[in-house]
């Protein structure tokens, strides 16, 4: 698969809005059949990148090829082979669920009859068949999202772009969306998504980049990123309020890295239980102890910082 021609290829890609540089020279390659993720805090440049890939935002610099074509010159031809699920659902509230799919299919030159069949299949796929003739407005957030995803599939796209596909959904709805996206991937559809949910990235992405301030700060598979930027396990220690700093000094040298937060201390270590034993041996008695596997969230926070972005 690695030898296949990349579907999306960006070199030194830049997007500026006036003086503000949203995307600051990134290199990305998305290969056929993979699920590729853009991770990053708000304002990292993920959505700007997605809009450029969606051929609705001309790059300000660098090189971008999608399906081997130039997004500025061949926008419609590329978009004919893309499916886009935007961050906010922009369904037509005056149409029914089914009509939202059939009218959209017409934009791809799909004949009416085929569009009807296709809509029926897709409604089945996203489990909305029973609501086919309902209006959009009374649907739940999860249903609207599924309908938007179905709409993005109406043209049998080769690449599906998903901008924060599960933001704002309840756990059941999220899992259903993940499961459907996984099936698409199994069928060979290339997925490109942005998210700031680490569990989502770990669930769905074969490969991902972490963006911060318009740049790519890390790249790899979720597993590789964890190995590279974190330890195997993390120990979370809580001491009595306001005494973290005092204890932290005594923990120096334990594990690879010690991070002191207002409410707890994190030890990044290879073996959590061994580290807990060492802490106890030092005569320290934390109020609570949690040993867990290192997650993408640790990588993410380590790379992009803990400060609130907005």
């Amino acid at each position: 698969m690695t030898t296949a021609q990349p579907l999306i290829q960006a070199r030194g890609l830049v997007k500026r809005f006036g003086d503000f540089t949203a995307v600051d020279g990134i290199d990305v390659e998305v290969r056929p059949g993979e699920a590729f993720g853009f991770l990053g805090p708000n304002g990292a440049g993920k959505s700007s990148t997605m809009r450029m890939v969606g051929c609705i935002s001309p790059p300000s610099g660098g090189e971008l090829r999608i399906l081997g074509m130039d997004p500025v010159r061949d926008g419609p031809a590329i978009r004919a082979r893309l499916g886009v699920c935007p961050q906010l659902d922009n369904l037509d509230p005056e149409l029914t669920v089914r009509e939202n799919l059939t009218t959209y299919a017409r934009y791809f030159g799909i004949p009416r009859r085929v569009a009807r069949e296709r809509a029926a299949e897709l409604l089945d796929f996203v489990q909305l068949t029973e609501r086919a003739d309902s209006k959009v407005e009374p649907l739940s957030g999860g249903m609207k999202r599924r309908l938007t995803i179905a709409r993005a599939l109406v043209n049998n796209p080769e690449i599906v772009l998903l901008d924060e596909p599960t933001t704002g959904l309840d756990p059941q709805a999220r899992h259903l969306v993940w499961e459907r996206l996984f099936r698409l991937k199994q069928q060979g559809v290339t997925l490109v998504l942005t998210t700031h949910y680490m569990d989502e990235a770990e669930q769905l992405c074969d490969r991902l980049v972490v963006m911060d301030g318009g740049r790519i700060v890390a790249e790899g598979s979720p597993r590789a990123l964890i190995e590279q930027h974190s330890t195997r396990e993390v120990v979370e220690l809580r001491f009595a309020a306001d005494s973290q700093e005092a204890f932290a000094g005594k923990l120096d040298g334990l594990g690879e890295r010690v991070e002191v937060l207002p409410d707890r201390i994190l030890l990044y270590v290879a073996d959590g239980d061994a580290a807990v034993a060492e802490v106890t041996a030092l005569g320290l008695v934390p109020a609570s102890v949690l040993v867990r596997r290192s997650s993408l969230e640790d990588v993410f926070l380590h790379l992009t910082g803990r400060t609130l972005v907005d």
Partner: peptide, 19 residues
């Protein structure tokens, strides 16, 4: 089940008069 496999893909043409 939706057939989205590459082999079964019918490539959509662009609409003749998009407007």
């Amino acid at each position: 089940m939706v057939d989205v496999s590459v082999a079964g893909r019918v490539r959509p043409a662009l609409p003749r008069v998009p407007a």
